[in-house]
Design a protein around this nucleic acid. Sequence first.
DNA 1: AATGATAATAGTAATAGTTATCAATAAGAG
DNA 2: CTCTTATTGATAACTATTACTATTATCATT
Lengths: 134, 134
Amino acid sequence: MNIVNKDRRMTKQRQVILERLREVKTHPTADEVYAMVKEDLPKISLGTVYRNLDILAELGLIQKLEMAGQPKRFDGNPHPHLHGKCIACERVVDLGPDFDFGLDKKINGFKVLDYKLEIIGLCSRCQEKENKLK
Amino acid sequence: MNIVNKDRRMTKQRQVILERLREVKTHPTADEVYAMVKEDLPKISLGTVYRNLDILAELGLIQKLEMAGQPKRFDGNPHPHLHGKCIACERVVDLGPDFDFGLDKKINGFKVLDYKLEIIGLCSRCQEKENKLK
DNA sequence: AATGATAATAGTAATAGTTATCAATAAGAG
DNA sequence: CTCTTATTGATAACTATTACTATTATCATT
Ligand SMILES: [Mn+2]
Ligand SMILES: [Mn+2]
Ligand SMILES: [Zn+2]
Ligand SMILES: [Zn+2]
């Protein structure tokens, strides 16, 4: 849990970003993290938020979710798991454990080292709304 | 093959963009399409390229590939197929038919309508280079 | 072939998201 | 407490893309 070392210090800003991100189950964008953290540290700058989100992801303490054609999102849960993007409410929700795609195999001569799977559909909340309309 | 109708005209620009994109097996970005098309139409503007790539994708004549955290790429082949992104040469290569992920099912209450699968690894060309180095 | 309505264009400004720069500050080792 | 330097806040810069607009070109209709 101690990330402090020769070239990494634990600043108030870094600490609050990590804490606030860990206590939500949403997957906020950098802007949204900025808004959350400003409640505690009103003078923090957006650049600091971006910088620390990158560093925390690099350290493996959080996850950076890069969805196609949309701003990056961040996940306080560092353990790999499957995400769904709701086309109605735009939220990103947890769908449970990741598939085991089977790495290091080859497809058509291409050596598979990693993959990104993005599930698109309707979250349960939006399905309910849809049902009430008919 | 005739996309002309009440509110869609076939311009020289649109035609050349479609032709040039169809004759390459790469997956160029808008900028790269711009460079290709300028050989035929030196006065075309980048905005026109973007606009037409969107329209052609909307018409189902080409594909827009939105990779996580990188500029969009375009594919002259409109039929769904699997793509691999090489971490060495940065190229996007065709890997053959798409998996049948099985749509309309539910994962954890989330209704799956679509998905994006991005394979990351080494293309065969870069694997050869790697082998020669040892 | 000429006309006319309007889709599309070239050129450019604007925007969103993110990264880079840098003087001032503060974490933390000694 | 002191010193080194990682980090910060503020802001500029950048990249990819979209929006705006006066002018031009397509094509259905005459
Ligand atoms: Mn998650
Ligand atoms: Mn392809
Ligand atoms: Zn929803
Ligand atoms: Zn390669």
